[in-house]
Amino acid sequence: MSSEAPAPTDPAAPPPRASSEVATDADLAELDRLAASYRTLTEQVGRVIVGQSEAVEQVCVALLAGGHALLVGVPGLAKTLLVRTLAEALDLDFNRVQFTPDLMPADVSGGEVPASAGADGPAFRFEPGPIFTNVLLADEINRTPPKTQAALLEAMQERQVTAAGRRHPLPDPFFVLATQNPIESEGTYPLPEAQLDRFLLQIAIDYPTEEDEVEVVRRTTSGPPSPLEPVIGRDQLLAARAAVRKIAVGEQTLRYATRLARASRPGADVSGVNPGALEFVSEYVRWGAGPRAAQALILCAKARAALRGEVHAGGDDVAAVAPAALRHRILPNFHADAAGLTADDLVAKLIAAVPRQPDAGPRWLREILP
Rank of each mutant, 00 (worst) to 15 (best):
P6T: 00
P8T: 12
A13Y: 01
A13I: 00
P14N: 00
S19T: 11
E21W: 12
V22R: 10
L28A: 08
E30T: 15
E30H: 15
D32P: 08
R39I: 14
R39G: 15
L41H: 06
L41P: 14
L41G: 01
V45N: 09
G46W: 07
V48A: 06
V48T: 04
I49H: 03
E57R: 13
V59S: 01
V59H: 02
A62E: 09
G66K: 07
G67M: 06
H68I: 06
P75F: 06
G76H: 05
G76K: 05
L77P: 10
K79F: 05
L82V: 01
L82H: 00
R84I: 08
D93K: 10
F94Y: 15
R96H: 12
P105A: 10
A106Q: 11
S109G: 14
G110T: 12
E112M: 13
A115I: 13
G118Y: 04
D120P: 03
D120S: 13
G121R: 12
P122I: 15
F124S: 10
I131Q: 08
I131F: 03
L136S: 14
E140L: 01
N142H: 01
R143A: 02
A150W: 04
A150F: 00
A151Y: 01
L152K: 06
L153W: 12
A155P: 07
E158V: 09
R159D: 00
R159E: 01
A164P: 11
R166Q: 15
D172I: 08
P173T: 10
V176H: 03
T179I: 03
Q180F: 05
E184V: 08
E186M: 05
E193P: 01
A194Y: 09
Q195M: 02
L196W: 02
L196N: 02
R198C: 02
F199I: 03
F199S: 01
L200A: 10
I205L: 11
Y207H: 07
P208I: 03
V217M: 13
V217E: 11
T221D: 12
S222L: 15
P225R: 11
D235W: 05
L237P: 01
L237C: 04
R241I: 15
R245N: 05
A248M: 03
Q252H: 13
L254C: 09
Y256F: 06
A257Y: 01
L260T: 04
A261M: 04
A263Q: 03
P266Q: 08
A268F: 07
S271D: 15
S271C: 09
G272R: 02
N274I: 04
F280P: 05
V281K: 05
S282T: 15
E283V: 12
Y284T: 13
Y284R: 13
R286T: 06
W287E: 14
G288S: 07
G288D: 07
Q295G: 07
A296T: 06
G309I: 06
A313W: 03
D316A: 08
D316K: 14
A319M: 08
A322T: 08
P323R: 00
L326A: 05
H328F: 01
R329C: 01
F334T: 14
A339Q: 09
A339W: 04
A339H: 02
A339L: 10
L341V: 09
T342Y: 13
A353P: 00
V354L: 00
P355W: 02
Q357R: 13
D359C: 01
L365A: 04
E367T: 02
L369Y: 06
L369W: 04
P370L: 13
